[in-house]
């Protein structure tokens, strides 16, 4: 459940825009930061605070790929598969992660530590292959670098 501090923040956000509905994305970010994804009951809180229909909140949230409607792993690994990264070996990085984690793209490991996703261009095309783990960027990837990075995670 979203905390009282979270609700207060959503209220502040709603009041800060010329129209309350503009606070939708910022409010969803608040929820996802607190809960890791967007649970249905929290979406209803957003709907209530922004005077929107709950079904509208859900359908609009689902339009955006960064909002997770279901729980994900502790570490969400997103590897860019767009053209500039593909030219410098993104596929090897993806294949290596699949092998190492023992999951397919789109899946979460049994211990709920890792979710593996492929994504489109991360605006790091000059330093690919690139992946994001949660909000952090890791660039110039090699198979060895990927292992080092994963081994170094707390």
């Amino acid at each position: 459940m979203v905390s009282q501090a979270g609700i207060d923040e959503i209220r502040r956000l709603a009041a800060s825009f010329p129209r309350r509905e503009s606070a939708l994305l910022p409010a969803l970010w608040v929820i996802q930061r607190e809960e890791g994804y967007l649970p249905e009951e929290s979406l209803r809180v957003v709907a209530r605070e922004l005077s929107m229909e709950p079904s509208d909140v859900t359908s609009r949230a689902s339009f955006y790929t960064m909002f997770a409607l279901r729980p994900r792993g502790q570490y969400v690994i997103q590897v860019c598969q767009s053209i500039s990264c593909a030219l410098v070996g993104a596929q090897q990085v993806i294949d290596h992660l699949r092998g190492r984690l023992g999951i397919e793209v789109g899946e979460t490991t049994h211990d709920e530590r890792f979710t593996l996703l492929t994504v489109e261009c991360l605006a790091s095309c000059g330093s690919g292959p690139v992946m994001q783990i949660n909000e952090d960027y890791f660039e110039h990837l090699t198979v060895e670098r990927v292992d080092e990075i994963l081994d170094g995670l707390p």
Partner: peptide
């Protein structure tokens, strides 16, 4: 919104 594949200047 810089999202065009190949583009990494605005960032």
């Amino acid at each position: 919104d810089e999202s065009e594949p190949g583009t990494f200047k605005d960032r």
